[in-house]
Amino acid sequence: MKSDAAYSASSNQTTISTIQYTLVAPIGTFAPISATSTSMTNLVGGVEDLLPSTNAGNYIWSTQRTALNTTTEYGYFALTGSPILPNIVAGVEIPLFRFRTQACIGSIRMYRNVADGTGGADTPKLNSANSIYLSGVSGALSDSYKDNYGTA
């Protein structure tokens, strides 16, 4: 994630209460070719946590997948718990997680809530988002990472 503004842990602005990313991939990327299982079984070693938190050990990454057609599936990466970042510096990338699949079978991209320069919006059947919620930040900035990666 990358913020347009700086936030200070001393004022409790860097507590994360929600992170969810949804990825769109060819069917079979995250699990066997089936729409009946919600488990990601093609990950090698699971999700590697990269979050530099002062509350480590009190949160976990969870993964889930679903398929709505014969060609595309969706991988959900969600964070449960409340990691607290030491500080958030404006314009500086903070790596959250990484993963590897057993085999590359095609391109993976972020789910699009709305049409943007990379293409049209994804299926409206999903209640999905690419969002990070900072619980200590008030007002309109509290969901400042909402929308596709790279936007405000």
Score class of each variant (00 low, 15 high):
Q64D: 09
S37R: 05
I88D: 00
C104W: 11
L50A: 07
L96Q: 07
L79D: 00
L50E: 13
V137K: 00
M110T: 06
N113C: 12
R109G: 12
T22N: 07
N130S: 14
K2T: 15
A78L: 05
W61P: 02
V44P: 02
M40H: 05
T71D: 06
M1H: 08
V92I: 13
A31N: 08
I94V: 15
A115Y: 07
N127Q: 11
D116H: 10
V89N: 06
G120V: 14
D143S: 13
Y133D: 03
S62R: 14
V114R: 12
Y21V: 06
E48P: 05
G120I: 14
G136R: 02
Y76I: 13
V92T: 14
Q13M: 09
S11A: 08
V47P: 01
I108W: 02
I88V: 15
A140Y: 11
S135F: 04
S82L: 12
S142I: 03
T36G: 13
S8I: 06
P26S: 10
P86M: 05
G139Q: 06
N42E: 14
K125D: 13
D4M: 07
Y21Q: 09
L126T: 07
T14M: 03
Y76A: 06
A103K: 15
F30P: 02
T72C: 06
T118D: 05
E48Q: 15
A6P: 06
D122G: 07
Y74Q: 04
T123I: 10
L43I: 10
S17W: 04
P26K: 04
T71P: 02
A56K: 09
A25T: 05
T29E: 03
L126H: 06
T14E: 00
M40I: 10
T15F: 07
S142N: 12
S3G: 10
G91E: 08
P95N: 15
Y59T: 09
T66M: 07
G91R: 06
D49H: 11
D116S: 08
Q20W: 04
N127P: 04
G81Q: 03
S34M: 13
F97R: 02
V89K: 01
P86Q: 15
Y74N: 03
I16K: 00
G136F: 12
Q64F: 07
S142E: 03
I132L: 15
Y145N: 03
M110I: 12
I16C: 01
G81H: 03
V137Q: 01
S131C: 14
T14N: 01
T29H: 02
V24M: 06
P86H: 05
F77S: 00
G117P: 01
S135M: 11
T80V: 10
L50P: 08
A103Q: 15
W61S: 02
T80K: 12
T14K: 01
S17T: 13
L96R: 02
T118M: 10
T38K: 10
V114Q: 14
A25W: 00
F99L: 15
Y145P: 00
T66A: 10
A6V: 11
V92D: 01
Y149M: 14
V114H: 08
S144K: 08
T14I: 10
I60T: 15
S107H: 11
I108H: 03
S39Q: 15
G46Y: 11
T70N: 13
Q64N: 14
